[in-house]
């Protein structure tokens, strides 16, 4: 059974539409949710959690309809939206004291462990924490009530490289027993390369791909060649950058044969995203 299933989620704004977003996540995996700024990542996450009013679609958490079982489903989810930016004059101790009462499965030992791991001091007020420390506090709260599903919006933004690496280790530890999953959005593609099992890629409110990282990467190739090779092959390029000596671009793996005279290399996630976003005219032909 899917731990998370999003089915045709819709949200219409005057200038933006979240267009029948669908994807699912099995227990025991990490899914990276990628897309440019304004692509709809945060809107999707908020619509999933009923923070914004959806115009259609369903969300299932552990087989239960989220919108019909909001209390139970929220209890199984740990959600972090960037840095913790609430009750700036309250101490972490007070906020935690309030928060833990909502979770019957609150794990005080785990909470203390994360406080130590993230070097958080409970007596400090929120306003006294740096942006990175606020992210860590939000994570400590989300990780301490035995949530089976963690939904994290930009959790690594604002963290230094050491903390980011440490956090990715925490993610891997969390899913190790196969019962939990993590969905996290990020702009830092290298974080996904390190820990994501699945990728869901959203562009302009539409899901372009939702698959495992290896298949996703293997469905593309990076090609580079001379300018003379470019014009005839341009229609097959998803995106390309021209330079003095020729071009570098992204192609679908099945088009590899047409680029035999060019240099072909495996595509990395960042290149796939950059080239895909580069060519809006190719939007419908991407996958």
């Amino acid at each position: 059974m899917h731990l998370l299933e999003v089915r045709e989620l819709e949200k219409r704004y005057p200038t933006f539409t979240l267009d029948k977003v669908s994807f699912s996540l099995e227990p025991g995996y990490i899914m990276g949710f990628i897309g440019r700024n304004g692509a709809g990542k945060t809107t999707t996450m908020k619509a999933m959690l009923n923070l914004i009013h959806r115009d259609g679609g369903e969300v299932f958490v552990n087989g239960k309809s989220f919108f019909e079982n909001e209390r139970a489903c929220k209890g199984e989810i740990g959600f972090v939206m960037g840095e913790f930016d609430c009750y700036r004059n309250a101490t972490l101790k007070t906020i935690t004291d309030v928060t833990r009462r909502f979770y019957p499965d609150w794990d005080e030992t785990a909470y203390k462990k994360y406080l130590d791991r993230f070097a958080l001091v409970e007596e400090k007020k929120v306003k006294e924490l740096s942006a990175g420390m606020r992210v860590k506090y939000a994570l400590a709260l989300a990780l301490s009530h035995n949530a089976r599903l963690l939904i994290l919006d930009e959790p690594t933004s604002g963290l230094d490289p050491v903390s980011r690496d440490d956090l990715l280790d925490v993610f891997r530890d969390l899913i190790e027993d196969g019962s939990r999953s993590i969905l996290f959005s990020t702009h830092i593609i290298s974080d996904l390369e390190k820990c994501a099992d699945y990728i869901t890629y959203i562009k302009g409110g539409k899901i372009l791909a939702s698959t495992d990282v290896i298949s996703f990467r293997e469905s593309y190739r990076l090609v580079s060649g001379d300018r003379e090779h470019l014009e005839v092959r341009r229609p097959k390029l998803i995106g390309c950058k021209e330079h003095a000596f020729g071009f570098t671009g992204l192609i679908r793996a099945e088009d590899e044969a047409a680029f035999q005279s060019c240099k072909i290399a495996p595509a990395d996630l960042e290149s796939i995203m950059i080239y895909t976003e580069q060519e809006d005219s190719h939007e419908t032909a991407v996958l």
Partner: peptide, 16 residues
């Protein structure tokens, strides 16, 4: 409003 209380509360395991 300044404390982002609505968002904090809406994320707790309670119906909206």
């Amino acid at each position: 409003v300044g404390n982002n209380d609505l968002l904090f509360t809406a994320l707790l395991p309670v119906p909206k």
